[in-house]
Structure formats: C-alpha cells, structure tokens
Design a protein around this nucleic acid. Sequence first.
DNA 1: GAGCACTGC
Length: 721
Amino acid sequence: MDDNPYLAHLPPFQRGAVHSSSSSSSEKEPLFGFLPRKVKGEQMDDFLELFSKNQIIVMVGETGSGKTTQIPQFVTYSDLPHTKGKLVACTQPRRVAAMSVAQRVADEMDVQLGKQVGYSIRFEDMTESGTTFLKYMTDGMLLREAMSDTELSRYSTIILDEAHERTLATDILMGLLKTLAKRRKDLKIIVMSATLDAVKFQSYFSLHDSAAGEEPSPAPLFKVPGRTHPVEVFYTQEPEPDYVEAAIRTVLMIHRAEDPGDILIFLTGEEEIEDACRKIKIEADDLLNADPSSVGPLMCVPLYSSLPPQQQQRIFDAAPKPSQPGYPPGRKVVVSTNIAETSLTIDGIVYVVDPGFSKQKVYNPRIRVESLLVSPISKASAQQRAGRAGRTRPGKCFRLYTEKDFMSELEEQTHPEILRSNLANAVLELAKLGIKDLVRFDYLDAPAPETLMRALELLNYLAALNDEGELTALGGVMAEFPLDPQLAKMLIVSPEFKVSNELLTITAMLSIPNVWLRPPNQRAAADQAKAMLTVPEGDHLTLLNVYNNYSQNKDDRNWAWNNFLSARALAQAENVRAQLLRTMEKYDVDVISLEDERKRNIGIRQALTCGFFMQVAHKEGEKGSYLTVKDNQVVALHPSCGLDTQPEWVLFNEFVLTKRPYIRTVTEVKPEWLLEYAPVYFDLASFPDGETKRALQRVANRRRGASNGGEEPRPKKKLKN
DNA sequence: GAGCACTGC
C-alpha cells in the first residue's frame, strides 16, 4: 500500500499507546480511553467533516485509492464504536477480499487480526465479541445478520464497499438501510463505489423531509483520487467477425512489436480459453524458432474459477527468461475469464486484450430458467478491464471492437444481478426481514414484476408464504437455511419420512459445484469410475452414495482422485453439511435415518418430491423426450444422468439450456406422491389440459378406487402444508 | 452424448 495517498495522514494507532492511556479496569477493552484526535491532512479533515454532519454519504474512489483500508479506519476514529458497545462494519462482495483487507488493516493499526479488527465470512468468524470494533464481512453475512436483527443494532456505522458491483446482497442491503436510516437516526451509512454510479446512489439515498414538502437533495458525495497509471486505449478499424481469432492475432502482434510486459486477455469460458492457449503457444513457438534474436519466449497461462488452485497460482509465476543471454526477455500471457476483472489482480500486466464479451447469467421468468449467454460487456466493464493494464506502470488496452461500437452499442453498466436472477431466495429473505410489500419495496432497480410473481408463487406453493403473501412459520425456518427454498423445504420435512440424515447429505451435495472429473485423455476410465458409484434409481441417490463412500474412505488420501472425483468439492460438501447440521439442531429438525435400504430410498425420493414437485417432467411417447409439468417445455435427460431406464415421471434439480434443453440430476418419482404431497399444485381441476393431466387423472381415479391399499409407506405426521 | 461467467449464505 505504498502508493496509498492516505497513509501519510494516518494517526498513530498502536497497542502501546492504548495501554498507556487505558485505566486498569478497561484493560480488557483496548482503546477504550482513546479519544478522537485532530489528524493532519485535508482529505481526512474533509471526510470527517462530511461524515460527522451527514447520516448517509456516497464515496467514490478509483482503484488504488486505498478507500477500502482507510475509510473504515477514519470512521472508527471518528465514531469510536467501542465506547458505545458497537461496531463498524465494512461489507465486501467476496470472502477473500474481506479476509485480506481485514488482515492489512489489522497490520496497519498494529493489532492482532480477530481482536479489535476482524472479519466474518461463511464458515469463519474471526471476531471477538466485546473486543472487535471494526469488522470486514461479506455482504451476504450482513444480510443474514439482518434477518435475525432487523435493526442491525450492533452497528454504529455500516460501509457498503464495492456497491457498484451490484450483487444481489448489496442491492437488498441498500434497500434495507435506506428504510432503516429513518428509524435509526444514530446509524451512519457510507456507500462506496466506482465513479460512474455515484449519481445514481446519491439520488437513491437523497435526503428529503417529505413532511416539509422539500425537494429531495442528493446524498453528499466524497471523492478520492485514484493512484493508477495511464492506459492508452486502441480500437479496431472494423468490427472483428471472430473475436477469439482476433485476440490471438493481437497477442502475437504485441509479442512481436511491443516493449516487454505481460499480457492479459479476456475470453468467456474454459473451452475457449484452453483452445486459445494451445493456439497461442504453437504460434509463439514458431516465432521464436524462426527468429530467436528478435522475439522472446512466451508462456501462456489459463485462468478460470474451476481450475484447481495450484494451477491458478501459475498466473503469479514470473515471465520466462530470454532464450539466450542478451536476447529479448520472455513474456507471460494470461488468458482469463471475468475472474481477472474483479476477483483476482495480477501485477505486472501492461497489455490488456479485450474482445468485449463475457458470459452473463440471464433469467427467463416465463420458463423459470437461468442460463448463461455470451453477451457484449458494458462500458463500465470495459473500463475496468482496461484498468488492469495500469496497475504497475503505464499500459495499453487493445479493444477488439470499433470506437463507434463502444460509444453507441455498449450499455453504460452491466445489468445488476437482481435483474438477471431467479429471486425465490431473495424474496424469502425479504419476507424474513419483515418487508410486507415485496413488489413495492424501494429497490435501487426494481426487478421485473413477472420475476417477483414467479418467486412469490413458488414460495406460496412451498407453503413458505401464505395466500396473503405473509411469511409462515415454515417459511421462517426455511429462511434460516443458507439454501434455495426447494432444498430448505425438503430438508425440513425430511424427518417425517425418517430420512433427514440422508437428505442432509444430498442437500449439501446439491449445494456444491460438480464433483465429477472427466480429464479429456481419461474419459473412459472416468466414466467407468462413475458407473461404479451410480445408483440406478436416481442421481440424488448417487450423490448420497458418493458422499458416503467418501466418508468411509477418509483414511485413503487418494480415494477421490482414484475415483475421478473432485476432492475440493467433496471437502466443501463436508463443510456445508456441518453448517446445515448446526442449523437443523438449532431449529429442532431431527436428524434420523431408516435401517431398511428399500424403505429408505423410497423415503428419500418422497422427501425430494416435497421440495421439488414443481420440477417434474413426464415422458411423452417412446422417443425419450420429456415435457416439464405445467410449463410444457420439451426437455431431454442430460447425458450425465445415471438412470438405467426412462421412467414415466422424473423430478429434476436443474433445467439447463445449453445446446439443447436438458434436465440434470434426475430421480424417478411416483405420480401418487405428487398428488399426495403437493395437492395444491397438482389440483387437477385447475391443471392445464394435455397428456400429463390425463396421466395424473388416471392415477387419481385409481387412488380413489383402491381404499388405503397403497404399497408405499406413508409419513406418520401430517405435512406442514 | 455434454460442460463450467462469477460470487454469496
């Protein structure tokens, strides 16, 4: 942080000083005797004045301004939260950021991390109650806290950092804080963002006294200059028809003609990146062989999130040495997804190649499907990418589109997540937060009404919200689980089928990334290993089987590897499972199991039905195509599906829209269960006409005929429906 | 007979 403009103005904040100014009775509460002091430096004076006079301020600071480490410290000095038994919170969209910034600030303040300065992220609370007064945390964590304390009464100041990223959690927190500020006049709020969004935040948080009929005045703005180097931007003369090919060509052009310095290229996904790396390597080797005295060696490194951490580390390796002493130095090329745009910073990048695309999540509320689409990036995103070239010295950014397209075709901002997501989870959270009218909630950007309707509808069918849209007791418990509503529901009802121990595992396995590995050169072996673990009744049972085998083979360090499974993902599942288990214990959800394997598997499939009855497909004809119930989407079983037959009725975890519409992670269900466990959703009187309805009608008639002669075990207690 | 932008609880 030596390029930090604030550092010179920092007051001494040392443990020694604290002890000398503390009385013996306050030894346990360090800094208690600490008084606010006048600190040199105009910037800090200006900030403190603004902070003391306003409840809400908006702050903009370019990258390299040090706002994330410095502003929370200024606030702490001014606010002295510990004298009021309160804390200053600073939220981050990502865990690593919360952890690493907390560490830096603890170092700067010369205190031990986890004492006066701490952090709080999922699975790890590095704070000490009564001692910590400055806490970095993920935005999701603060949102969770708000669900149990809607006043956020532990905090004297809340700083929302990186607000311009507009994560779902930050957006909900902003709405919440805007309302809370009216009730809690003692609560201070700082919204920190990149420059482009400031005006929007200022007017959202505008102060107005509606009683006095005043015109709203925008929230005050505080600006901090950045400390980055200039980046020269180049555009192409004509649009590029093939951006991957153009990117490769540009890299080689830079390699031949430009001064030493590493290159960062943005592409959209794993396959594209691996492919581009191969091609760049071949071309660069040709160049080197043809004329080793005029070009240096080139090293090409892929970067995307599903890459094992060890391989991700390679982006920090130094560029290769010259092929011979006195020859041109080598160059490192990192070919990355958007992960290098915000999450990971690579020093030494001087050239950025930006084709102008990324994969973005889009949500279609009509068919209730989230999918990934390669789309043009926004101007803000392009600017962020360019900035990656100027971190250590002046750089260059090559945009593979025309300046005209940049000006007229790109959107100013990437659409915030709240406009691109299924909001079932968010709506349940809002209900738990006590928001009565979810449609009229003061969103910074209001989601499409249809998206909200879809979420409300799902939660109502799951009995998390009643017909008036109010949170039910069941919904209240569901919100306590860090899970999608369907998963929370099935986990909570699973004791009624005596299979909650199994559902706990399945839920954990469904909450983590894909566990199956399939290296390109060992596909057959990987498929064989998978077949060994497959349970033909359904993929959910297969996931359970995988986890149980993993648990039983804990002594064998190579078990996951030998079975072509991701050890990292399995370890995550174990973590998630432990967390869910704690939540179950807290809310008295019994963890029980059935001895008999056949009964157990039936119970599991029945419990799954209680959460996923809206994600059921019915086989149509003999060609193996399925129709989703009610939505009537034609879907196929995903090729990864382990069912050995094509059952008439299946429940699926996921609808994926890739080359074709697929349903993934699929288990056979009985139509009787649909009628029994989801009678409202499967009310035949209001069911759309079609083959599915006729099939259900036949089952319903049969059930009415046969009085209580069902061969399947029934749950003892009545379901909480 | 496919895939996995990224993050968070």
